[in-house]
Design a protein around this nucleic acid. Sequence first.
DNA 1: AACAGCATGTAACGTGTTACATGATTAC
DNA 2: GTAATCATGTAACACGTTACATGCTGTT
Lengths: 176, 176
Amino acid sequence: MALEHALLVALSERPASGLELTRRFERSLGFFWHATHQQIYRVLGRMVDDGWVTVEVVAQEGRPDKKVHTPSDLGRAALEAWLAEPLPMETFRSELAVKLRGASYGDRARLASHLETTRAEHVARLAAYELMEREQFPDPAGLDEAARDQWLVLRGGIGLEHFWIDWITDYLQETS
Amino acid sequence: MALEHALLVALSERPASGLELTRRFERSLGFFWHATHQQIYRVLGRMVDDGWVTVEVVAQEGRPDKKVHTPSDLGRAALEAWLAEPLPMETFRSELAVKLRGASYGDRARLASHLETTRAEHVARLAAYELMEREQFPDPAGLDEAARDQWLVLRGGIGLEHFWIDWITDYLQETS
DNA sequence: AACAGCATGTAACGTGTTACATGATTAC
DNA sequence: GTAATCATGTAACACGTTACATGCTGTT
């Protein structure tokens, strides 16, 4: 029961259609949340039924109509209530960790080569995030509240990529 | 389709019953994987059906019998095949990130106080992991292959806790 | 005419979570 | 005798993933 709230945050920042939300999730909130369009459409439908968002059909030029969703008073209240709840202790789930730990039951050299690939992907993501930081937040001191929160979450994404890269690098050094 | 493989790694290290596996997951692999006993029993049952593990009923003194599971040749082959597959790009899912980003749509002071609690929990987990490292791996240079992998994954857990603590600290400083 | 993109959706399936159930033993 | 621990399990539900379906517009 959290995708609802993630969508409410995104729609509070700016009303959007299902597909726009999907793309926005891939980019900005995507460092820490991922959802397919099918999931988003399903949850969005439920939120409309529950009166958390209102829908407006917007005609576009040269494109199909889109359904733009906006949080209602009820939705804003639900978001506020959720934000006030204590944070659950989160446990990440990493297939990589399982493979590192199980390395001696398979082909260690082959795993190492896959790890090189994964590290390169994280290096690329880190570079993309750092570019986003420079372009979208050139002057952190001058940001308003909501933008500063976005910036701080982006910094979290950067920190997480550093963690991955450092860990894989450490592992490859120790096992080489 | 990955809990199967995580269980195979754990059972390769040492055969175990469902409940023993659940507890082991909470401790050692738990930094990067979590599973309830219901999930583990279900998957274990499927693995028995598929011939990936064999079961031996072991009588105990003053306790109920337990079913000890051991990987079969088929299971070992399945694990090896899985380990040889490329790693999927992992995307973590963090409720904390969503709340940080949504802070301006709720009670910021209240969120900050929850964040203090969460940070304290991560500090405690970090201390527990560091204690485990000192006690279980006092001499990293002298470890065999499997134990070194366990140590390196524990170091990953330590790195992840550092990430959380640093991020939350950074956020609280910037928004205070 | 074929293909890619926009936009929304259905259906089937697999995984994860929550609540509850059973029965035995040990500790207070 | 009440509660806690060990050990295994069932059932119902929520959530996530994959594949497929529709129809329209713009490009090659």
